[in-house]
Amino acid sequence: MMNKQIKMIIKIKTHKRREIIDITDLVRENIKIRDGILFLFIPHTTTAITINEYEPNLIEDFYNLFERIMPTDYPYKHNLIDNNADAHLLASLFGHSIFIPVENNDLQLGTWQRVLFLEFDGPRERKIIIKHL
């Protein structure tokens, strides 16, 4: 029997230029399959999604990493167009999609793993596409 694929779009608002938001509970609330795989895709070129721990010191380390590898005040060529080159570059490094296994209507994440939405050019309203496979 073939499983029916379900596609959903959820929206979130960001409040800072660079922001890390734990969206694990939001993703869990939108599980529509008992067993399978969730595919999450971010349709924006200045945001990313990843899985990691959401611990305050680690989050601060992430922000420090962002600034070290992509300083906001560097003279990027793309900034001549719209002043957000660092956001595009960071998003490409972290990536725009993840897969998560689902069993018994729950995400199969490790003990400390959380789904993190990375905003690099906010504040904005953003979309997350969730596909149930």
Rank of each mutant, 00 (worst) to 15 (best):
R28N: 08
I130S: 09
T14K: 10
I21Q: 07
I129L: 15
L118G: 01
P56R: 07
I37L: 15
N3V: 10
Y74N: 04
N57V: 02
K32N: 12
I9V: 15
Y63N: 03
F62A: 00
G95K: 13
K131D: 01
F99T: 09
D25R: 13
G110H: 10
N64R: 14
S97M: 06
N64A: 06
I81H: 14
P101V: 01
E55D: 09
M70I: 00
D86P: 10
M8L: 15
H44F: 11
R28D: 01
N57H: 12
K4S: 10
E60A: 09
Q108W: 08
W112R: 11
N3W: 09
R126I: 00
P43W: 12
I20H: 06
I98H: 11
T46Q: 01
N84D: 02
L38Q: 03
I69W: 12
I128V: 14
P71I: 02
I21K: 08
V102K: 06
L26E: 04
L107Y: 06
K13L: 05
F66M: 07
R18V: 00
E103A: 13
T72S: 12
F41V: 02
E103R: 15
D106A: 05
I12A: 04
I23R: 11
H88R: 14
T47M: 10
N52Y: 07
N84M: 00
M70R: 15
F120Y: 15
F41T: 06
I42V: 14
P56T: 04
F39V: 03
I21G: 04
N3H: 14
P43T: 01
T14P: 11
D61I: 00
K7N: 12
H44T: 05
L90V: 00
T45C: 02
D86C: 09
N104P: 01
M70Q: 14
G95V: 06
Y74V: 01
G122E: 09
Q5M: 15
I6H: 13
K13Q: 14
R124L: 04
T45Y: 03
T50P: 01
L89I: 15
Y76H: 07
I59W: 10
I100Y: 09
L38Y: 01
I23D: 07
F39E: 03
T46M: 01
M70V: 08
I128N: 05
T24V: 05
Q113D: 14
L38T: 00
V115P: 02
E29C: 10
A48Y: 08
D73V: 01
L118M: 15
L116T: 03
Y76D: 05
N30A: 03
L38W: 01
K131I: 14
L116V: 04
F99H: 13
K32L: 12
A87T: 11
P71E: 05
Y54I: 01
P75V: 00
